[in-house]
Amino acid sequence: MNPSNYVILSALLFGIGTLGVLTRRNAIVVFMSVELMLNAANLAFVAFARMNGNLDGQVVAFFVMVVAAAEVVVGLAIIVQIFRSRRSASIDEPNLLKY
């Protein structure tokens, strides 16, 4: 199969992730959408690695997985703490900081 189809799929996933971040209000779902964007980039890297005929893109994908795992740790820590002090995981509700 033509690898450029995977690039189109990755662009679609990236778009879905972006829409998710912008429209969903639950912090966990927003966070999942960000992860979807990172994985869309991974798919693009791997597809391009095959199209370019070198391994750089696959190496990048491994590093991104590690970084995404670290991001999950930090992000969930912050979201859980917010949930415990507010009893809600909505990202609209904390609104003490404005203007």
């Binding site: 690039v7 990755s10 990236f14 964007m37 990172l38 869309a40 980039a41 693009a44 890297f45 597809a47 391009f48 199209m51 370019n52 750089d56 893109g57 990048v60 991104v64």
Partner: peptide, 9 residues
């Protein structure tokens, strides 16, 4: 990251 993927591509 996605921009980096496109540049790499």
């Amino acid at each position: 990251l996605y921009g980096a993927a496109l540049l790499y591509g």
